[in-house]
């Protein structure tokens, strides 16, 4: 079945205000935004951001997230150690939140991004409806993986007792921040209309 898309009818849609013009227009007369039929370099941008976040995902999970110094002894913990700590202290709810937000969600996001890129690259338009469903899910849950970064940041601020107890951020904190930012940028630069384009 052939659908009437903007590409088939040689039209261009202003993504800002929703006005429709013939393809030769580049500036929307309604709101002065520049218009392109598809977001520029959407595929390659999404691919690059996804690859960067896959690379940074490894140090984010292997390296320590924070160092707790108590009376001179340093105690380093990774993201996973943090989860185990909550399980040991019987706060199962928090353990589940951290596990979902900082381990499951990033992996799920990366998988979905790779699936979207697969659908676009091989023109598997029959998967488009499934793909856009997952795109909306990762778009919604994306920001929740920032929670671990925020927790570390807040702990550093709240616990400032000099030599007695202090907390500092480990090397995983910036890597994890990069992972989250890159996945958000990847979903932002992806153009969902590409999923339906047949040629």
């Amino acid at each position: 079945m052939k659908y009437d898309t903007d590409k088939n009818l040689l039209l261009v849609v202003c993504t800002h205000c929703g006005s429709i013009f013939n393809k030769k227009h580049t500036i929307c007369t309604n709101c002065n935004s520049t218009m392109t039929q598809r977001k520029k370099h959407a595929f390659i941008k999404t691919l690059c951001f996804t690859l960067i976040s896959i690379i940074f995902f490894i140090p984010a999970n292997v390296l320590p997230m924070m160092h707790v110094t108590t009376l001179g002894t340093v105690d380093s913990s990774t993201i996973f150690d943090g989860i185990l700590y909550f399980i040991d202290s019987k706060s199962y709810g928090i353990a589940a939140v951290i596990f979902i937000a900082s381990i499951m969600v990033p992996i799920f996001k990366l998988m979905v991004l790779l699936f979207l890129l697969f659908v676009v690259y091989f023109k598997k338009t029959q998967f488009a409806r499934t793909a856009i469903k997952y795109f909306r899910i990762i778009h919604f849950i994306g920001k929740w993986s920032m929670i671990d970064i925020f927790v570390v940041a807040l702990m550093i601020v709240i616990v400032q007792f000099g030599h007695l107890t202090s907390i500092s951020a480990g090397a995983a904190a910036p890597s994890f921040t990069v992972v989250v930012i890159m996945t958000i940028l990847a979903t932002q630069s992806f153009d969902t209309r590409l999923l339906w384009d047949e040629e």
């Binding site: 935004s33 920001k143 929670i147 925020f150 807040l154 702990m155 932002q188």
Partner: peptide
């Protein structure tokens, strides 16, 4: 429309509710 474009862009970057939840998590941790 300039303000509106900025608003639309920032919508994806506001994470105040995540910040609030992280305050609760750090309270339990501390």
């Amino acid at each position: 429309s300039g303000f509106f474009k900025l608003y639309e862009y920032l919508l994806e970057w506001q994470m105040a509710e995540v910040y609030l939840l992280s305050i609760f998590v750090s309270i339990i941790k501390l």
